[in-house]
């Protein structure tokens, strides 16, 4: 277990300079996620056009893992369909929790999150934004979504 496995350059970069950070005008879905244990909070803003995620941004505060994961996620899902984004959620979830997960192929920069698996106390940090996304995409009535919690 090495600190450099967890805090790879991509993670450090996205923590320092989060992409797609801030409010989103004309958003169609806004979901809050929180990790009560560590106080991480984020709000995910999505603008859905039919089945497609036309735009996505996030706000909130959290640790480097949580911030970088959310930043990487927004880059990865922008322009994708619901089904594609949910499939990505499944793959990232496996990457974070399953030692026998499929190789990182096709995950691009998201593969940088694989080091988190070795730090069980930090898995929730990385998965918060993804659970928030999945909840938003799976809900038939996005306005009715209660806040998402990792607890």
């Amino acid at each position: 277990m090495d600190l450099q496995d967890l805090y790879r350059d991509v993670i450090l970069d996205h923590n320092r300079t989060p992409r797609n950070f801030g409010p989103l005008e004309g958003s169609s879905t806004d979901v809050q996620g929180s990790n009560p244990l560590c106080g991480d909070r984020l709000t995910l803003h999505l603008r859905l056009a039919g089945d497609r995620i036309e735009d996505v941004r996030f706000e909130g505060h959290g640790c480097a893992i949580s911030t970088a994961s959310a930043s990487l996620m927004t880059e990865a899902i922008k322009g994708r369909t619901r089904a594609e984004a949910l499939a990505l959620f499944e793959r990232v979830h496996a990457l974070l929790t399953d030692d026998a997960a499929a190789p990182d192929e096709g995950l691009g920069k998201l593969a940088a999150l694989s080091g988190v698996r070795e730090f069980p106390a930090r898995v929730k940090c990385a998965s918060l934004c993804w659970h928030t996304l999945a909840t938003a995409l799976k809900s038939p009535a996005p306005d009715a979504i209660a806040a998402v919690s990792t607890e």
Partner: peptide, 8 residues
């Protein structure tokens, strides 16, 4: 530096 990163 977020406290949780510091802790790790």
């Amino acid at each position: 530096v977020h406290p949780h990163d510091l802790g790790t």
